[in-house]
Amino acid sequence: MNALNRLLSRPWLWSFAAALAVWIATVAVTAGASSGGLTDAALTFAAFSVFVGIGQMFVITLGPGNVDLSVPANMTLAGTVALKLMDTQDSMILPGILVTLLVGLCIGLANYALIKALRIPPIIATLSTSFIIQSAAIWTNRGLRIKPPPVLADFATSSTFFVPNMALLALLVSVLAWVLLNHTIFGRWIAAIGQSMPAARMAGVPVDGTRLATYVLCAILAAVNGFLLSCFSGGAALNMGNEYLLMSIAVVVIGGSAVAGGDSNVPGIWGASLLMFLIVSMLNTYQFEAGYRLIMTGLIIIAVILVASGRQARPR
C-alpha cells in the first residue's frame, strides 16, 4: 500500500498515464493495426521535444522568472549554419557538430551576459537575443534549404533494434540529465538557487557560475535539437523552431516540474512529450476541426496538470 502511494505521488506518473490513454484511444480506431507505426512516430517526434524540454527544465528550475525564449531562433541558427558548413559532405560531419555546439555555447553566454551584466530580466534578455539570432539565421542563408549529409540523414531517420535512433539519443541525454540533476552537486545547486537565491548565496553556492552553466546547457541542447531536426527533416528552414518555444515550456510543466522552480524531474519530460504528440495525432485521427482540436488540447493539458498537482500536494 505504501509503495502504491509512493508511486501515485510521483508527479511524472500522470503525464505517462495520459499519454497511454491517448495512445489507446488512437489505436482503437484501427483496432490496434496502427499501434506499431504510431509508437514509432511518437518516440521519434517526442525525442525533439525532450531535447529542448530538458534544457528548458534546467533553466526553469533556477526559479521564478527564469525561462529561455531564444530556443526557436537558436535551433534555426544552429541548423542553418551547420548544414551550410557541411554542404551535404559526409566528411564535414564532425565540423558540423562542433559548430553546432559552438553556436549553442555562444548563445548561452550571450543570454547570461545580458541577464547578469545589464541586469535585464531573463524573459526580456532571451527574447532580445532571439531577434538577433533569427536575423543572423536569415542573413546566413536567406532561408535556402541545404540537404543534410546522407550519412546523417540516414542515421536520423532510421532505427536500432526497432527503436528510432532519435529516441535513443534523447534517452541517453535524459539519463545524463537525470544523473546531473539528482546525483551531482551541480544539480543540488540548481535546486537550491530555485528554492531561494539569497539562501543559496548565504550557503556558499556559486550562484553566478551555476546560472551561467545552466543557460549555456539549455542553449547547447537547443542547438543540438536544431541540428538533429534539420538532419531529420531534410534541411533547416527559417521557421523550423517556431513550435518548440511553447512546447519546451509545456513539457516541463505537464511533466510535473514546479513552474516556480526548485523542484523538477526528468521522466515527466518524456511523458509530456509523448502526450503532446499523441494528442494531436488522436484529434487528427478523429478528424476534429482545428478550433476544437486546440480547445481539446488545452483541456487535456489542464486536466493532467490538475490531477498531478493535486496528488503531489498531499504527501508533502
Binding site: 489505436v27 496502427s34 527533416s233 528552414a237 513550435e243 504528440f277 494531436v280 487528427n284
Partner: peptide, 23 residues
C-alpha cells in the same frame, strides 16, 4: 479521409502526417 495542419512548413507537415498515417 483525413486532414492535418502542416503550417506550410516541411517539418511540421512531416510530424502531423506521421501521426495520422498509421490510422
Amino acid at each position: 479521409v483525413g486532414a492535418v495542419h502542416g503550417d506550410w512548413a516541411q517539418d511540421v507537415a512531416q510530424k502531423a502526417v506521421a501521426g495520422i498515417l498509421p490510422s
